[in-house]
């Protein structure tokens, strides 16, 4: 009788140090990704009266308040662009990043029960969050477009830049940045809960350094010594560029684009590596 050859389907071993992301496996679980997206979208506003309208109410009200406080009270100028539209663009784009970051940074802790019982490529979970937020972002963009048309109709001089065709690329970069940062944080949260607190108010503070409610030129003019803090923030560039695309607000730097793209790609891959290392044994430390 022949002894069976060592033709094992797979082997479960102690965690290895090398970067090992099994793309084939992720592909095999693509249906699961869609299920999670469906679950997130369908169940979020179940048993509410306004339902998906909540997707719209939140950015609208934020923009109204921002317009009141920053533009009417503090007197920030937005050039020829209506301040409300200026803020709505910033808030919509910022929201996508924020939701991606906050939701993915909780991945391991929130899904402890299911991760503790069954195996599937863990990265499916944060990926599904980014995708379902993309849907939400799409809905919020339509409301932006509606207001856009309204302002055009009442005679404001707003028009998009031709660079708008690159908007999906920008969204991709933003998604990678949010997902990458979220994966890094979620991996560290498994052991040290300190980061949860940091994320909660850190995101809030970061918003003020991300040009959501004011243009880059303003900070260069008012506090030129601290402008570098905003320059270093990739999200500031993303929002500035997106406003350039959507509203033709002509203030952006090529170096800013390159810087943001590089940072996002690096953060994304660092996040993937750390996440992959963590997923093998996080259940012991969480």
């Amino acid at each position: 009788m022949k002894t069976p050859k060592e033709d094992w389907l797979y082997e479960i071993k102690p965690k290895d140090t090398l970067f090992s992301l099994n793309f084939k496996e992720i592909w095999r679980y693509r249906d699961l990704l869609l299920m999670f997206v469906k679950r997130d979208v369908v169940t979020l506003y179940k048993q509410t009266i306004l339902g998906p309208l909540w997707y719209l109410i939140q950015p609208l009200f934020t923009s109204v308040v921002f317009t009141l406080i920053f533009n009417n009270v503090a007197g920030i100028q937005t050039g020829s662009i209506p301040p409300f539209l200026f803020n709505l663009a910033g808030v919509t784009v910022w929201n996508y990043f924020k939701e991606c970051l906050v939701a993915t940074s909780d991945t391991f802790k929130k899904n402890e029960a299911i991760f503790g019982k069954v195996y599937f490529p863990r990265v499916i979970m944060p990926m599904s969050i980014v995708v379902s937020n993309l849907l939400k972002f799409g809905i919020q963009l339509t409301i932006f477009i509606a207001f856009y048309l309204y302002f055009v109709f009442i005679g404001n001089e707003v028009r998009p830049n031709v660079a708008l065709v690159f908007f999906p690329v920008l969204v991709l970069i933003m998604g990678m940045l949010g997902l990458g940062l979220g994966m890094i944080i979620s991996s560290m949260v498994t052991k040290y809960r300190d980061l949860t607190f940091l994320v909660q108010f850190g995101v809030q503070l970061l918003m003020y350094f991300s040009l959501v409610a004011y243009p880059m030129s303003l900070i260069e003019q008012k506090i030129p010594d601290l402008a570098w803090m905003v320059e270093l923030n990739p999200m500031a560039h993303v929002i500035e560029i997106s406003r350039f695309m959507l509203l033709n607000e002509n203030n952006f730097s090529l170096s800013g684009i390159i810087y943001t793209t590089v940072i996002s790609i690096v953060v994304f891959f660092v996040g993937l590596v750390i996440f992959n290392k963590t997923e093998k044994s996080f259940i012991d430390t969480i």
Partner: peptide, 15 residues
């Protein structure tokens, strides 16, 4: 066995 966590040492081979 269900790959929820990895062993500290040793291995499991499966067909």
């Amino acid at each position: 066995l269900s790959q929820v966590t990895s062993p500290t040492t040793g291995s499991i081979k499966s067909r």
